[in-house]
Design a protein around this nucleic acid. Structure first.
Length: 109
DNA sequence: AAGCTGACTATGG
DNA sequence: GCCATAGCCAGCT
């Protein structure tokens, strides 16, 4: 497991319940601005990681559940977030900016 | 080795 | 708001 993946998982685990962050925000926090795809790639591999990673709290910049098809069921991601108090309009988070949690703003270096 | 892919994002028409 | 382009870069044919 590369250090990059571990750092991504570390950040995702810091996301509080009921809050979400984006691939781009994580990439930026890790100094990889523009490489949001790599964060998504890390999420794809998170299932194999020995520690739980709340991948359902990572969505794209629009608050859209673009990664839902990578969960056990397409509804699992929405269900998990809904159980944490997040509301949806289709697959898009309502009031996304209110739930958004930016690691580069919330975490110390 | 070269090309394709993708849980992304920004920009422009 | 929708579609096309273009950066991005690790991993997989």
């Amino acid at each position: 497991m590369s250090d990059f993946f571990e750092m991504v998982y570390e950040v995702v685990r810091q996301v509080p319940p009921g809050r979400v962050t984006t691939y781009g925000a994580i990439a930026r926090y890790l100094g990889m601005a523009g490489s949001a795809r790599m964060v998504g790639w890390a999420m794809n591999a998170s299932h194999a990681y020995h520690t739980f990673v709340p991948a359902h709290r990572v969505v794209n910049r629009n608050g859209l559940l673009t990664g839902k098809h990578h969960f056990d069921t397409p509804e699992a991601m929405k269900e998990l977030l809904a159980s944490e108090g997040i509301k949806f309009r289709g697959d898009k988070i309502v009031n996304f900016s209110r739930h958004f949690w930016d690691p580069s703003a919330e975490l110390p270096f």
